[in-house]
Nucleic acid binder design. Structure first.
Lengths: 404, 404
DNA sequence: CTCTGGCACTCGATCTTACCGAGTGCCAGA
DNA sequence: TCTGGCACTCGGTAAGATCGAGTGCCAGAG
């Protein structure tokens, strides 16, 4: 589609622009290595590249800037995956050798690591509950008319489901229910309980306005007023059906059913996977328009949007989404996303990603994101245990060669 | 210290500046209600106010701007607590009537609410674990050589402690340990286990080299490199000793000891109380210097710093900390913090706060923060249950009168 | 003694103009 | 087909020029 010379010129323009954030002129390109022609020739080629939509001029007599199409071509054909520098490889290795602890803790730290590696904002999404299996379950009487169902998943995540009891149940009922619950759900996938619990449907019938299904915009929430900040994220949807069906719990079995139903609906803590945002402050370095920063941060506050964004990109088989054309979020018009999946127990589960301006260093971001993704997969490969894994020395997936 | 007229003028200057963010001139003041004198007179008074440090001129022939001392006087003597508008009262009432669910969920939502009420960034700190009592405890075998101790606290928080087992213990040992753990810790304060736990003192198994003393900095942590983002927050301290002493766990009792020790040290998930930051994007609206935004966001990423900040301010008996002089954080030089405590089960536990530019609307922020604090206290007044509380209609502590 | 209107003065913000130079498009010659 | 040359464009910056909000001070009124 593009002959070699044009491609080389495009690559040079992109690389230079990534570095300087300034429109780049023909003479710079002519001077860069690999281009054996004069600036006049480069200019000629640039005219072509521009007419085909790979470059634009902010105005006459300015250098050229890559378009989203230009970046896309660069990423697909020219950039490759890039490599991390030695220091960064080291950093990754040390990090994964020493990062012990619960899954959330590790993921949060990972988001910081990734932010530091790339210089931009990092996004790490927790594996959704349905990729794990229930390891333990218990119902705890919290006093009053409340109980808390606690689930431990095989990946180390703990989910909580607040249960409202219609009346003071006897302690022994709760105890019995707890035991029955454990017997019934251990070893199963939490989300699979939705359908398997016959009682669920019964309950659902009892509740006219039950589970409006996440992502549906439920009712008259505070009218999303001015602040884009607090508006979005399906706040409404979650806020409503947060307590479990209170239809007719009287026996232990009823209680277990109710809990199973709640679990199946995923009404508990681990909605669709928590998001950890690292290095949000770096966003402020990406743009000089304070308004842009505001908009981007606004999006980052809407975790559901972020999760969806990453998942969408991945679902479409992409690892890079450049500009609003490809990711679809207006406020992120000047941004691109680079993502990679990671696996837990061998199954694709979570995602890691980097959010930066469209003029970010894609090869580097790709490298960082994929290394981190691999390392995370490595950590939770065998069993979904929560802690440790003292694989030092071996930095397995860290395929890191010197960067340019 | 300041005669009535000076005070009135100072009040007018502060109010005006809060509204417009522009230096305010004598004629504006003279025109505002409550000032019955000419601009010349106002000017004269302003000279005094300036010489005493309540006001400054950005440059000759500009209006005056309040100094931190000026704000302080305003807050202490002039501003009062302020009142929320009817719409906002409504919003708070609806929010607390409908916000069900786990404590973390409610607190996160609360931070958004507060951000929306004030227009600035809101900070909500989870109650520390030691203000609650353990309601349930269990040790879950996670496969491999890992186990997870799960604690349910009376305030609805669930803590997790990853435990590394030296060798494959028999399942029954874990089961027994789990039962013993429950018997031993239920009803106690988690942090009280540190000393009361016989682990350090004694208990049957004499353990020669037990307890390698967590909190000792274990490894060569990544050298806190450049990025201020990922640097701070005592990352090192936490990262290292994240797994419990693995000295010589062989019996169930050993295991229980180890877990108790870990709990006592607070090595688990609920470090010193999670922080929920709401409306961070609003920070970008507060300043037009992108660099300032970056610095402030950088601080917000360091949760430990935020917790400490809020706690410090509260400990000093303040509810407002104006400027770096009073809160001590250089990067927040242009910011003030307004805080209020909230109670769980009658004891002061968490804090809510608002972070804004020094020229924020203190009365409004104070009103919002205290109302929200009261409402949170109200919610968890009786029992530290996790969910619900359908007190609608009654908007208890929402003492809200029309604002200016 | 205090307050007020008046007045000269200051100085940042804004606008105008001029200029510079990076970068372009085009063209004639190698 | 490539290259050096050349006229041209136009954003960015610097230098005045201007405007006006706001000040300090002072003399006169209350």
């Amino acid at each position: 589609m593009l002959d070699d010379r044009k491609a080389a010129i495009l690559r040079a323009v992109v690389s230079e622009y990534i570095k300087t954030a300034q429109p780049v002129g023909s003479s710079h390109i002519a001077a860069s290595p690999g281009i054996g022609v004069s600036s006049a020739t480069v200019r000629g080629e640039m005219v072509h590249l521009e007419s085909e939509g790979y470059l634009v001029q902010p105005h006459t007599s300015a250098g050229r800037v890559p378009t989203e199409k230009g970046y896309r071509f660069f990423v697909d054909q020219l950039g490759g995956v890039g490599r991390l520098g030695a220091a960064q490889r080291m950093q990754v290795r040390e990090f994964f050798a020493s990062a012990h602890g619960e899954i959330e803790y590790v993921l949060e730290k990972t988001s910081r690591l990734l932010a530091q590696l790339t210089g931009w904002t990092a996004l790490v999404v927790e594996p959704p509950a349905d990729s794990s299996v229930i390891r333990a379950a218990q119902i705890v009487d919290m006093g009053g008319s409340t109980a808390l169902a606690v689930l431990v998943l095989s990946n180390g995540v703990v989910e909580k489901y607040p249960i409202e009891l219609p009346s003071e149940l006897d302690c022994s009922v709760i105890g019995e229910a707890s035991a029955r619950l454990a017997a019934r759900v251990i070893g199963k996938h939490p989300r699979s309980l939705s359908s398997s619990s016959a009682f669920g449907e019964r309950l659902e019938g009892d509740r006219p306005d039950s589970s409006p299904g996440p992502l549906s915009s439920a009712g008259g929430d505070r009218s999303s007023s001015e602040g884009s900040a607090a508006g979005g994220e399906g706040a409404a949807a979650k806020q409503s059906s947060r307590t479990t069906g209170r239809g007719s719990i009287s026996t232990a079995e009823d209680l277990v059913d109710a809990v199973c139903f709640a679990i199946g609906c995923g009404e508990g803590s681990a909605e669709s996977g928590q998001v950890f945002v690292g290095g949000a402050s770096q966003m402020a370095a990406a743009f000089d328009a304070v308004e842009t920063v505001r908009e981007v941060l606004g999006i980052l506050e809407q975790h559901l949007v972020v999760v969806t964004l990453l998942r969408d990109v991945l679902d479409r088989g992409l690892s890079v989404a450049i500009g609003v054309e490809e990711h679809g979020l207006e406020p992120l018009a000047a941004c691109s996303v680079v993502v990679a999946p990671y696996e837990v127990e061998g199954k694709p589960s979570g995602t890691v990603g980097v959010l930066g301006p469209t003029r970010m260093d894609y090869p580097r971001a790709l490298a960082a994101v994929s290394v981190v993704g691999e390392q995370l997969s490595e950590r939770w490969k065998d069993a979904g245990r929560s802690g440790s894994g003292s694989r030092s020395g071996n930095d397995g997936g860290v395929r890191a060669v010197e960067s340019e």
